[in-house]
């Protein structure tokens, strides 16, 4: 009788751990999927920027600084892609800021605002920008759910030993960056 009870308790425990494990894997995969989505959009933005810079270069002789800032921020963001979420988020936010400055400057050039190619690139970058920010909200929501499930009892007992680690949030840009400073000098 006693061996049977022990066997029963063991089976229940094993099933319990399997269920917890599967739940954690599902949540971790959601985080990975959300992260993959945001990486696709970031990549698309990186690919679009050189086209935009080329399209506006000829018109903006006096504002080379803005273009240089965008190009440098893009290079930094691509490099930061391999340095973890926090560094990448920071570099990408800096890129968003320089892009906003560029769009603000474009507003001053009637020829640019009438250029089909520039308009199309601007629309594509704007939508990518918005998609990044909506995907970031989604990613952060999934990260929050995953991290929570790692820390609650009884998951906390098995999460560490089974190799589940906390994920970082894709940090939103600080409020200060919302207002781009455009130097037209």
């Amino acid at each position: 009788m006693v061996p049977l009870i022990i066997a029963g308790v063991l089976i229940v425990l094993v099933v319990f751990v399997i269920l917890l494990y599967n739940g954690l894997v599902t949540k971790r995969n959601r985080v990975d999927e959300a992260n993959a989505q945001i990486q696709v959009q970031l990549k698309r933005r990186h690919d679009l920027i050189p086209n935009l810079v080329n399209a506006v270069k000829g018109y903006m002789d006096f504002e080379k600084g803005v273009l240089t800032a965008v190009t440098e921020a893009r290079a930094n963001a691509i490099a930061a892609g391999a340095q973890g979420t926090a560094a990448q988020a920071q570099a990408e936010n800096a890129l968003s800021g320089t892009l906003r400055s560029l769009f603000a400057v474009v507003e001053n050039y009637p020829q640019l605002k009438a250029n089909e190619n520039v308009l199309s690139l601007q629309e594509q970058l704007t939508t990518t920008e918005n998609q990044i920010s909506f995907s970031r909200q989604h990613l952060n929501a999934t990260v929050l759910e995953y991290n929570n499930s790692l820390q609650v009892f009884p998951n906390v007992l098995i999460a560490g030993p089974l190799g589940f680690t906390k994920r970082e949030f894709f940090a939103a840009e600080p409020e200060a960056a919302e207002v781009p400073v455009v130097n037209l000098g």
Binding site: T127, Q131, F134
Partner: peptide, 11 residues
């Protein structure tokens, strides 16, 4: 594009 953005935002 805008529909796509809103679909992303609404999940």
């Amino acid at each position: 594009n805008v529909v796509n953005e809103m679909a992303l935002a609404a999940g």
